[in-house]
Amino acid sequence: MSEAKQPIKSIVTPSRLEYDFTPGIATTRFLRHMEEGRIVGQRCAECTKVYVPARGSCPRCGVATKEEVEVGPNGTVTTFCVVRVPSENIDLTLPYTAAHILLDGADIPFFALIQECDAADVRMGMRVEAVWAAKEEWGPTFENIRYFRPIDEPDVPFDDFKEHL
């Protein structure tokens, strides 16, 4: 069979779409607080739980949230994983630890990196603090918090955070 008669198995059609996303009212406020170096969540008026980052509603109660509550900057590792495989768009030295962190004053954990700590030493219940980027680099973004690191406080007992894994 001549080359011209070979079946065409695939063609490449590049496509490009640009989107201009809207964060919404609650996230805008959260990001403005981040710009000032503060982590601010919202309390649900019905169940009184504090959400951070808040998206303007309590997903459980289905009502809009308004009351703002400053949380952190310290927190507790509720659960974690040690990443030993590279991922697209993530430029970190392996292995590294990604953890659910329950910030003090918040009622829902937050997904973040743990650094300045050997992966083998990360524990459920470990106390950590936020490490911020240099102040002049702050913007309306999550990335102001570079990562969390351990602090010299006793571990929190499992029963105290088992609802927030």
Binding site: F21, L31, F111, L113, F158, L165
Partner: peptide
Amino acid sequence: KVPFQQGMVAGAGGYFAPLIRAYMKR
């Protein structure tokens, strides 16, 4: 990448691994 959302920091399995750890512990 949505600029105001938290980026994925751990890849696909990174979402599930902490839950598995929680199950193992429990």
